[in-house]
């Protein structure tokens, strides 16, 4: 039972000092969680601390690979709007 940080992490350091088990460490290209140390904050906090402060939707997954902060849950931006923006930016890059 451990959480995982994936590539959408922006390396903001917010989670690192909160981890009660010092399971989170700075790495390239992004922070990582040592699965041997992480117990999802069981016994320490009601909510997993890293996922509770993380500002990036989808950056932290649970043991089943599900996003603890799914798209739209933190920013309030509807996921389809975000997809539109990404598509537009990609098109602009290819056009340039």
């Amino acid at each position: 039972m451990a959480l995982e940080i994936i590539e959408s992490c922006v390396n903001c350091w917010a989670c690192e000092p909160l981890c009660p088990n010092q399971a989170i460490y700075e790495a390239k290209p992004h922070f990582l969680i040592n699965p041997d140390k992480c117990n999802e904050c069981a016994g320490d906090f009601a909510d997993s601390q890293c996922a509770t402060i993380c500002p990036i939707e989808g950056a932290i997954l649970n043991a089943d690979g599900e996003a603890l902060n799914p798209p739209g849950s933190l920013t309030g931006i509807p996921p389809e709007k975000f997809a539109e923006l990404q598509a537009a930016q990609q098109a602009a890059r290819h056009g340039a």
Binding site: V10, N11, C12, W13, A14, I53, P55, I56, L74, T75, G76
Partner: peptide
Amino acid sequence: APACNIQCHYCNRKYD
């Protein structure tokens, strides 16, 4: 100071 403790609607945390 990269970490933040709030979210503002005028901010995108992908700041680089």
